[in-house]
Computed example of a mutant assay.
Amino acid sequence: MDVLTEALSSMRTGRPSSVRTEGRAPWGLRLPPIAGSGFHVVLQGTCWLVPLAGTPCAPAPIALGPGDVVFLRAGHGHVLTDQPGSPVVDMTGDAVPPDSPIGSVTLGGDGALTRLLCGAYHLDQNRPHPLLSHLPALVHLPASRGRHPELAAAVQLLGSELENPRTGSAGIVPSLIDALLLYILRAWLDEQDASTGSGWAAALRDPAIAAALTAIHADPAAPWTVAGLAARVGLSRAGFARRFAALIGEPPLAYLTRWRMTTAARLLREGDTPLSTVATRTGYGSEYALGKAFKREYGLAPGSYRRQVRAA
């Protein structure tokens, strides 16, 4: 059970959308806030990311070069431009055609060319998994030889498919963009100082806490107790509870409840699984028990939640 993959899957509400952007200096593109997380990959040339006034995505403009990757956790609005101060146009809603895996935007003058892949991951930001919510507002991963080779390879593959579309590209590009998110987060986690005493980067490196998280994610319906999890990972009950709360930010059983509710919400969103089965798969003995817990967390009964999501 891969905790990172499961955490992201639990938040996903749709396929990623993406736009191939080409700008010739002078150019500027204003991107509005989105309900999810945004990303940019510089395939060729250079540009600047300029935060909009009042948004926390970055304290100052950021210079980006070839191969650089930027991830905006909460999809804050911002501007991409060849230079701060260049004329700016707004991104329009028709940039991505409904019958294509990727849209296209061309703008600017007749100066130096910059090519980017810009896009959004449609993730539920109302109840984000703490692994994502604890990330910085903006993650910038500059390109560098030998640094994050898997991420660099994914960027290279994306660039190749976009420059020379061939048979199968319509299926390959969305899959690569999906994989890109995991590579971005893995690269960020790998860069965190191993001496850091708290946070998800430290938790996933800690053998005992990582094993406990894996157990919870693999079988949320199991009758887990703090003592049972502690015994499973070879720690005393008190020592395990302290270490888990220090790294994750909440006690083990609070996280277990969070994951059970997250799993229930995903089952309700993604299919027609009977409520009795949802209850069984999330560790609740009856539809009534599930409904009581779910309404406490989401403010809606499970059936109402499913209908609301389907209608959206």
Results as ranks from 00 to 15, higher is better:
Leu229Ala: 10
Thr262Glu: 09
Val233Thr: 11
Ala246Arg: 14
Pro251His: 03
Gly249Ala: 01
Ala265Ser: 10
Leu253Tyr: 07
Ala230Ser: 14
Thr263Gln: 00
Gly239Cys: 03
Leu253Lys: 10
Ala245Asn: 09
Leu256Ala: 11
Met261Gln: 06
Leu253Val: 04
Gly239Asn: 08
Ala264Gln: 00
Leu268Ile: 05
Thr257Leu: 14
Ala254Glu: 13
Arg258Asp: 04
Leu235Lys: 10
Glu250Phe: 02
Pro252Gly: 06
Ala264Pro: 00
Ala230Pro: 03
Leu268Gln: 03
Ile248Thr: 12
Arg242Phe: 10
Ala254Cys: 04
Ala238Met: 12
Ala238Gly: 10
Pro252Glu: 05
Arg237Phe: 08
Trp259Val: 15
Arg258Thr: 10
Pro251Ala: 00
Phe244Glu: 04
Leu256Thr: 06
Leu247Trp: 05
Leu253Ile: 02
Ala254Ser: 14
Ala231Trp: 12
Tyr255Asp: 05
Arg243Ile: 02
Phe244Met: 05
Gly239Trp: 01
Ala231Val: 07
Ala246Asp: 12
Leu253Gln: 09
Leu247Thr: 14
Glu250Asn: 01
Gly249Val: 09
Ala231Arg: 11
Ala246Lys: 06
Thr262Ile: 09
Leu256Met: 05
Leu235Ile: 10
Glu250Pro: 04
Gly234Val: 10
Arg258Lys: 03
Arg266Trp: 00
Trp259Gly: 09
Ala230Asp: 15
Arg242Thr: 07
Pro252Ile: 12
Ala230Met: 08
Thr262Phe: 06
Arg266Gly: 00
Glu250His: 03
Gly239Lys: 11
Arg237Cys: 09
Arg258Ser: 11
Ala241Arg: 11
Gly239Ile: 02
